[in-house]
Simulated assay, not measured.
Amino acid sequence: MRYGINPQQAAARAVPVDPERVPLRVLRGRPSSINLLDALNSWQLVREAARTLGRPAAASFKHVSPAGAALAGPVDEATARPYGVDAASVGELTSAYLRARDADPKSSYGDFVAVSHQVDVELAQLLTRVVSDGIVAPGYAPGVLEILAGKKNGAFLVMEADPAFEPPEEESRDVFGLRLVQERDRVELSEALLADVRVGSLSEQNRSDLLLGLAVVRHTQSNSVCYVRDGQTLGIGAGQQSRVDCTRLAGAKVDTWWLRRHPLARALEFRPGVRRQDRVNWQVRFVEGDLTDDERARFREAVEGDPGTLDAAERDAWLAGLTGVSFVSDGSLPFRDNVDHARRHGVTCIAEPGGSIRSGDVEDACRESGIALARTGVRLFHH
């Protein structure tokens, strides 16, 4: 490999457990350890999501967790405009990636891309216009590798996954002189996990979104939670020691996603020469509403005319219009505060393992808020 986790760890290599069965191969570029971890985790996510839900899936990974993930589906103007695509005519695979990247476009800067199906020319051309480090997919259509060859001056990583590969029954890792060995998690994600509905009822769309959320948290650094709506993540909380902190952080991302659809945010016009990612970042900072004095001056230099202001009352009124959001937790909700925070972000159904000593309080909170609750009975921690 190019290096390990950090550049100073120059002596780094990846060794197949079974030389006869390799999960992926490098077609272009030279990966680091993080690149490979992103590729392996993201490929598992999109493969599982596509298998479970029968639609093309995509993920945008950063530091071994998804910034966003989505199934193929409709692309709205707020998603399409930053990337110069026609929302009405975009293909399925490209729509999946656009929807995945749109969950947290600021974090997706320099992402690792994963898609469940063969990369076509349309997606390859889109990738030439965004900042990303590499892609993993089960194949590439004719001409695609040539399109990607010039990205990052030829350093863009292109990896091909074997869709038929199944890992060994045991997995291991070495940590500070100890080798940890465990049985591979073989729980299948299916609607059977959503059979135990304790509060309310689940629609077909709820079940689909909850299953996508389960696939996402399964491949996200724990503690993790995920907000999903109409086949795309709106906010993912990863790696926090407190679950409610994950819920709040991911909820803030949901609010940002929804506020980017406010008329004032959609009406922002930028001066010529402002780069694509800078436009995305400025839109995010505009709707977040806490620009520093320095940022405010630079923002006014970047936009045309008077952008207006999203005051607190207008923000609250717009956020109140978001509904139909599903919420998934990789572990049991230990307190009702997770439900109380989640309902602020349009959540109408929750899936979590249950089994906490305060699961009754969680159930009561869902009942009080009119939120459907499914108990999966399965913990999906990932470290």
Score class of each variant (00 low, 15 high):
L212T: 01
F286N: 00
W282V: 01
R275A: 00
G251I: 05
T233C: 14
R296E: 06
T220W: 13
S242D: 14
V217Y: 14
W282L: 01
V328L: 01
L264D: 15
Y227Q: 05
A252M: 10
A265F: 15
R271S: 07
E295T: 02
R261T: 14
D230A: 14
A267S: 15
T323G: 15
Q232N: 12
G324M: 11
H262N: 13
T220P: 13
V328G: 08
W257Y: 15
H262P: 08
P263A: 14
R248L: 15
A320C: 12
G237L: 14
D293I: 03
R300S: 10
A252F: 08
E269Y: 09
A265L: 14
G305F: 03
S203T: 11
Q277T: 00
R218Y: 09
N206T: 10
D316P: 03
A250T: 11
A252D: 11
R279V: 01
E295V: 02
R315T: 01
T292K: 09
I236Y: 15
H262A: 09
Q232H: 13
D293V: 06
A250R: 10
A265V: 13
R285L: 10
G289F: 01
Q205C: 03
A313W: 06
F327Y: 11
C246N: 13
G273K: 12
R285F: 02
H262C: 12
D290Y: 10
G235F: 09
A313L: 09
D230Y: 08
A302P: 06
